[in-house]
Design a protein around this nucleic acid. Structure first.
Length: 559
DNA sequence: AGGCTATGCCCCC
DNA sequence: TGGGGGCCCTAGCC
């Protein structure tokens, strides 16, 4: 099957070097042409590999030399790197990845086909398993219809998709980004946590105003939340087993709880904190660890209240906690025991969950919908998003399952589908995609906007300069802004500038931090196509002219 | 420029 | 039921 290419045009960017960082910049790498690997070059390298393989890797040859026999000529037939069988090969053909046909589909996990021919392949109107017709009428559903439904608009407004990189900090963190959080009141402040335990504070309007605090945690920052009553303070839960409360002005961090007071006593003893949320009404920080336990910390006294409660399978990681935005008594948790669980805060004890939402694999995240709190969206490692349309209805099975590639590789931050907090219809979600797609010869990993009420892919957003996967995504609570974390870099996306309106100077500033490295992936690419719609489905974003207003790329590549 | 590796979950014995 | 080996699209460092 011929690898498919999606044609797409991208605007140009301005790159600036971070003035704070010392750089050795030798500009010996010019603008590289983005070349497609044709089948010819592919087969050439195969030949080479054959010879080298024979000389260096063939054990038979080695044995033969030892025993002084003539080397046996064996033909090292190319075998599939996945199943080790001959006749086919998994791997990249140009920018398209060809699956091993002997394995189940990489996307939907079902046998009998590969990703290329998967009926759930990410495309419009694919991937949805419709809800079975059920009678979900009960008293609570009635209450829902009476009290909540009238507040929800019947007509969905058109989605505004932040589909163009507006600014970025490249290699901002020293390890991959693990979480992002917008400041609750100051519109242009973004917080980021990383695998090393550092917390970044970035003003993405001033762009160069940024700060990384390195002394708050000693390893992975798994979740951050602002103090709802004091937005100058932010809480963070870390795999170092502590919760921190950091004053953003001073950078001074308090440690509220330490689950490893005796230090490293082996992997079976070391406790890590993952899921975290704040219940404002009850004045507690809720946090959960990698052994299945939930802890409550009183915000006023900054001390642990009560004993740890087993809320997931003993010994399993609890990766997510979310308090219902409307009903403060409702708590949602999810974890590695393949369950998301709903709890009544008034009756938190082992085994007393109200509902257990089962999944086929680990649940990376589970969130109540942001406005009514009546829907649930989960991301599971079985490559499916699941939606429960009403927590007052039948929770036996999800209302919808949407097949989507976010199966996570251990080296990535787990993907989490996040609600758009601005969408009054509570149906738009954003989630990064794992498998790449061939865009004009480049393998890119888009960030998907999905209408979870229909399963429709509303938009897939990408930039040719971002070749890394973007598992961490957050939509702004008020503005049409998307923040994405990809490897060590952070990107701010806004809707494409509409050239007609007001001649807005759209300077896209890219700050490059850190040590000089071999290749900078911000280059000048593809300015040919006139298909500039960024795969917006059913929406017309006029932006052809906007590209010409962007300053030409002047990045000097360095090594 | 290629090879290592940190790291998490799953599966199998 | 527990430990160890094995991984399908990593990314960055040596």
């Amino acid at each position: 099957m011929a690898p498919q290419t999606r044609r797409l045009a991208f605007p140009k960017v301005v790159i600036e070097r971070d003035s704070d960082t010392e750089q050795s910049s030798s500009d010996d790498e010019g603008q590289e042409e983005e070349e497609e690997e044709g089948p010819l070059s592919e087969s050439e390298s195969e030949e080479e590999g054959k010879e080298n393989g024979f000389e260096e890797k063939s054990e038979e040859n080695f044995d033969a030399k030892k025993k002084g026999k003539a080397p046996i000529t064996i033909s090292l037939k190319k075998v599939c790197k996945v199943c080790k069988k001959a006749g086919h090969e998994a791997g990249f053909k140009g920018a398209t990845y060809i699956d091993c046909p002997m394995k189940p589909c990489f996307l939907c996990k079902m046998p009998g086909h590969t990703t290329m021919s998967c009926p759930h392949r990410v495309a419009i109107e694919h991937g949805v398993t419709p809800a079975p017709h059920r009678n979900t009428r009960n008293a609570l559903e009635y209450v829902f219809e009476r009290q909540l439904r009238p507040r929800m608009p019947l007509i969905k407004p058109a989605y505004v998709i932040p589909d163009e990189v507006n600014c970025a900090v490249i290699r901002y963190h020293s390890r991959r980004v693990t979480c992002l959080e917008f400041h609750p009141t100051t519109n242009n402040i973004l917080l980021s946590g990383d695998k090393k335990g550092q917390v970044g504070v970035w003003d993405f309007c001033k762009v160069s105003e940024k700060m990384v605090y390195g002394n708050i945690h000693s390893c992975i920052v798994n979740n951050m939340r602002f103090n709802p009553t004091n937005d100058g303070a932010v809480y963070a839960a870390s795999s170092d087993g502590t919760i921190s409360c950091t004053d953003l002005e001073t950078g001074i961090a308090l440690s509220l709880m330490n689950l490893n007071p005796d230090g490293w006593q082996g992997p079976n003893k070391w406790r890590m904190l993952y899921g975290m949320d704040i219940n404002q009404e009850k004045g507690v920080v809720l946090v959960a660890d990698n052994f299945g336990f939930l802890y409550l910390v009183d915000i006023r006294t900054n001390s642990k209240s009560g004993e740890a409660i087993l809320i997931h399978k003993k010994g399993s990681k609890v990766v997510g906690l979310h308090c219902n935005p409307i009903q403060p008594e409702l708590l949602l948790s999810c974890g590695n025991d393949h369950f998301a669980r709903i709890w009544d805060m008034r009756r938190l004890e082992a085994g007393s969950s109200l509902y257990n939402l089962s999944h086929k694999r680990v649940v990376n995240s589970a969130y109540f919908s942001p406005l009514s709190g009546s829907k649930i969206l989960t991301t599971s490692q079985d490559n499916r998003l699941r939606i429960w349309d009403s927590i007052f209805g039948n929770l036996e099975s999800p209302s919808r399952e949407i097949v989507h590639s976010h199966d996570f590789n251990r080296h990535l931050t787990p993907f989490r589908a996040e609600w758009d907090p601005k969408d009054p219809s509570e149906s738009l979600a954003v989630v990064g995609r794992y498998i790449s797609e061939n865009y004009n010869g480049a393998a890119l990993h888009p960030i998907d906007f999905i209408d979870v009420s229909t399963g429709q892919l509303v938009a897939e957003v990408m930039d040719p300069n971002i070749t890394t996967i973007s598992p961490v995504n957050k939509l702004h609570p008020r503005d049409d802004v998307l923040a994405s974390g990809s490897s060590r870099s952070i990107f701010i996306w806004r809707p494409k500038a509409k050239s007609e309106v007001g001649e807005q100077k759209d300077e896209r500033k890219i700050i490059v931090c850190g040590r000089a490295e071999k290749k900078q992936k911000f280059g000048d690419q593809s300015d040919d196509s006139d298909d500039d719609t960024c795969k917006m489905k059913g929406k017309n974003i006029k932006s052809k002219k906007s590209r010409s207003k962007l300053t030409p790329n002047n990045l000097k590549r360095k090594r």
